[in-house]
Nucleic acid binder design. Structure first.
Length: 737
DNA sequence: GAGTTTGAAACT
DNA sequence: CAGTTTCAAACTC
């Protein structure tokens, strides 16, 4: 209880509502299956798919009056090109609005999470939970390594695990990028979590403000994910837009819940002014991008779609800029930066989408991690895009996705900047992101012949993108069953799929959602990642060793003939060893063999260290192609286990209760011996719900802070984010309370 | 590319 | 919950 982290968390008022609120609230957004949930904001008929930007644009209408900024708003509106996208308008409006505030720090902080705010805002009422804003600010701050020194004082190991390396890497630009990617993805996942609770749609419906849960979750994540504060001292290169944005954001605070200003201020205390300034830098980047691409509607769309990675992107962007010494706004910015920009800026509009599909980003798709910094970023981007597409389509409620997938197409189209840099990669990216099959997203001279599917797949596998390019060949399942990899991964089928009678497409969104709901009703974890991975940073190698295979594979395999040596075996495919949960016979899993009552740890750790993170690379497994791996992944250990950020993944939280029993003692012994003795509490069940899942260990998790916090997490996060169950659960919670 | 094997998913 | 069927990926030739 004396842990600084705990103390800090205790100061986060939003967490309190957690316990009072619904445990599933954070993911209620997933209930977008409900048509009402995504009713188009009256003022945004043109782009219902981008609720956040939309409601932002409405800010002037409803809120500016409160701040006496109507005039400015009018000016901003007048400055907007009539032909601009609605989202574009939003951006310009933001940049046009200026508000003087005595508390600069607070202003900046509140303004930082512009995109986040969007997701918390209702276009209708413009109600913004200041807590959320603050939380988001922190989140952004975290993403930009802008955490307050106060937080830095915390000595939780978790923080060290997550950022300790990064701190060291800061001095090493080469390693920096890599770590940035780690951090980026980590934050991405965290943002995914937050995305699930995007209250936007909820606001549409009832205007209730349950975002405290979100903020609490975010706060916790931000706290734990606190990056090194070294960058706090980095003089951010700000441009006027940055300030404008911040100010504008600040305006949003009063627009929303005045009563929660206290919380905001309280948080501001936690977040240092420096952090705010740095966060502002992030904004600056996004703004710059907007300015650079203001003329491109497609680009705007793209950015808003890829919201999930905003913070990670910003983080990465900043680091990269620092390492290169180039201003992010300069043309010299690398393509990665550009990508990040897209991702980052896109958040305001797409966050919700990303959250649409719970499985997204968590599935094997997410396992794809490039060995190289930029590659990693790119791949993540690609994966994300497809995910986003799926989500977004799924969340069609937001818009009219059913009949109109063109926005998606537009979104998918890589920005010219991206293409310029790495034509080859870009092409690949297009393939990966080429999501909307029916809608040609390759119209711009990019071919995507279906008959070249295998060839491209092969190529993708070679470059380690196979998992980010899931394709199926379903014939009878209509791609609406877990047999379908795309569906199971929470993705819509894409053109390269060879499926027949496919219903897993945006046009059949309702069907897809309903099917998902049904499947999840049977098995809430049906769309959960099959393999839970722990931190993969070099410093966590020990953890990898200590972490039992059972901790990484949610459900044991049931192999009979394959000996767990082929990809038939989920464990093997996932690159983890078999464990107690497995019912395999004659297990010879090279990553960890279950033999009788023992589980013999083989090469899993080595694999994890060497494997570039890509399940596809398992084809070369296990260690036979070390050289190849080494060549492709100069620093595999860093990327070996992409799920590094999953210590905060809801999966972990979801299973935590199960882990409580017996997990610690088991792992304790395992940690000492490197082998696993069959625990008396071993659960050997085929039921996914019965599987005992342990999680990567971190000393932080054993700290009082963690123990108290994880309860909050558990309450705030459903066992696994679901499309449909969340709302039901939420409603049930409401009834109970 | 066709056919077989395999095990998860779905069904009863 | 166990047994069976269905299914599509993985694999082999």
């Amino acid at each position: 209880m004396d842990s600084p982290v705990f103390n800090y968390i205790s100061t986060l008022s939003p967490i309190k509502p957690f316990s009072l609120g619904h445990s599933t609230q954070p993911f209620h957004l997933l209930n977008f299956s409900s048509p009402q949930a995504f009713k188009t904001p009256p003022t945004c008929p043109r782009e219902p798919k981008f609720p956040r930007p939309l409601h932002v644009s409405e800010v002037p209408k409803n809120n500016f009056s409160q701040n006496g900024s109507e005039g400015k708003n009018a000016e901003a509106s007048s400055a907007i090109e009539p032909t601009d996208l609605h989202t574009e308008k939003v951006d310009k409006i933001d940049s046009s609005v200026t508000v003087s505030t005595a508390d600069e720090s607070s202003k900046l902080v509140s303004g930082i999470p512009r995109s986040m705010k969007y997701e918390c805002n209702s276009p209708e009422n413009n109600v913004v939970n200041s807590d959320v804003v603050k939380t988001h600010s922190e989140f952004n701050v975290a993403g930009t390594e802008l955490f307050p020194a106060k937080v830095k004082q915390d000595n939780s190991k978790e923080a060290d695990c997550s950022f300790g390396n990064e701190m060291g890497l800061l001095a090493n630009p080469m390693a920096q990028n890599k770590e940035v990617c780690e951090w980026e993805k980590f934050v991405c996942e965290a943002s995914d979590m937050s995305n699930y609770h995007s209250p936007t749609e909820e606001n549409y419906q009832d205007g209730s403000d349950d975002r405290n849960t979100d903020s609490g979750m975010l706060s916790f994540v931000a706290t734990v994910l606190q990056p090194p504060s070294e960058h706090i001292n980095d003089p951010p290169k700000l441009d006027p837009d940055c300030h404008i944005i911040s100010e504008n954001r600040h305006m949003d605070v009063p627009m929303n819940k005045q009563g929660e200003m206290g919380n905001l201020n309280e948080r501001n205390q936690v977040t240092t002014g420096d952090a705010s300034v740095l966060a502002e830098e992030v904004v600056h980047y996004s703004r710059t991008e907007i300015g650079d691409k203001s003329g491109s509607q497609q680009q705007q769309t793209t950015r808003r779609r890829c919201l999930v990675y905003e913070m990670p992107g910003s983080h990465y962007r900043k680091l990269l800029a620092d390492s290169t010494g180039n201003s992010p706004t300069k043309p010299a910015a690398s393509s990665s930066i550009l990508n990040d920009k897209c991702l980052m800026v896109s958040r305001p509009g797409g966050n919700k989408f990303s959250s649409a599909l719970p499985g997204i980003g968590l599935h094997l798709n997410t396992l794809t991690a490039g060995a190289k910094d930029k590659i990693i970023v790119k791949r993540q981007t690609l994966t994300c895009r497809r995910q986003l597409i799926s989500s977004q389509c799924t969340t069609s409620a937001i818009g009219s996705l059913n009949s109109d997938t063109k926005p998606i197409t537009t979104q998918i189209n890589p920005t010219p900047n991206v293409v310029k840099r790495e034509p080859e990669e870009q092409k690949e990216e297009v393939q990966v992101s080429g999501d909307v099959s029916e809608n040609s997203i390759y119209g711009e001279g990019i071919e995507f012949p279906q008959n070249s599917f295998k060839k491209k797949r092969r190529k993708a596998e070679i470059i380690g993108e196979a998992d980010s390019c899931k394709r199926c060949n379903c014939k009878r399942s209509k791609c609406l069953k877990l047999y379908c990899e795309c569906f199971a991964a929470g993705l819509y089928c894409v053109e390269p799929c060879n499926c027949q009678d496919c219903f897993n497409k945006p046009v059949h969104e309702e069907t897809v959602l309903e099917t998902r709901r049904q499947i999840e009703s049977r098995n809430p974890l049906a769309f959960a990642p099959k393999v839970i991975r722990c931190s993969g940073t070099p410093n966590n190698e020990e953890e990898l060793i200590k972490t039992p295979a059972s901790a990484r594979h949610k459900r044991g395999c049931n192999c009979k003939k394959s000996g767990c040596l082929k990809k038939y075996c989920e464990c093997f495919q996932g690159g983890v060893g078999c464990s107690f949960g497995c019912r395999c016979e004659g297990c010879k899993n090279t990553f960890g063999r279950k033999e009788g009552t023992e589980i013999i740890l083989y090469q899993e750790t080595r694999f994890l260290q060497r494997n570039a993170s890509d399940v596809s690379s398992l084809n070369d497994l296990p260690i036979t192609n070390e050289e190849d791996h080494d060549q492709e992944t100069p620093e595999p250990s860093m990327n070996a286990r992409q799920p590094v950020r999953q210590p905060f993944h809801f999966d972990q939280a979801a299973f935590e209760e199960d882990i409580k029993i017996g997990a610690q003692e088991d792992d304790a012994s395992e940690a000492l011996t490197g082998e696993y003795s069959l625990p008396t509490t071993c659960v050997k069940s085929a039921s996914p719900n019965c599987k005992r899942i342990s999680y990567p260990h971190c000393d932080f998790e054993t700290s009082p802070a963690w123990r108290s916090c994880r309860k909050l997490i558990l309450r705030s996060i459903s066992s696994f984010p679901t499309f449909t169950a969340e709302k039901e659960s939420t409603q049930l919670h409401g009834k109970l309370q």
